[in-house]
Amino acid sequence: MERDVKFLLNGNEIKMKIKDHWTLLYLLREELDLMGTKEGCGSGECGACTVIVNKDAVNSCLYLAAEIDGKEIQTIEGLASSDGTLHPLQKSFVENGGIQCGFCSPGMIMSAKALLNENQNPTTEEIKHALAGNICRCTGYIQIIDSVRAVTSTGNEGIEVVAWKTEEKP
């Protein structure tokens, strides 16, 4: 069955028809051409498809598109400014070696963003807990955790603390 949904996607209001059996991941990639969000396992094990719905990180591969009506969706495409300036988290992943092949990065960064929206000074344990549902097969996690820690105000000494607004939109 088809239905009309209205939602905010990276700050833009979207009204469209969707099919009941579409997942949010399918909607983003195949219908809206937003290829930043990746499909890894397709069963909620790997976190590559992580996006933020309202305030929550969710696996978009298991989230039905029919459920986004009236909600606010944030994807990796919504982080950088329109002039191409990277979000501090993205910049930190680049600078700290948190990216190798890059397939897990959008999901990792969205999980980290959901954490930092709620808790601007997470401990290393809290970062690990928040990223436990995101699998990386390249870097070995250390650099990823360092990348997240570097944008917190309790991050490594010597790394500049970057102030950023959680509601910043392109």
């Binding site: 909620g44 976190g47 969710v58 298991l62 989230y63 999980s111 549902g133 995101n134």
Partner: peptide, 9 residues
């Protein structure tokens, strides 16, 4: 249980 993403849903 699961992960943050699973627990949220």
């Amino acid at each position: 249980i699961g992960s943050v993403q699973i627990r949220n849903v």
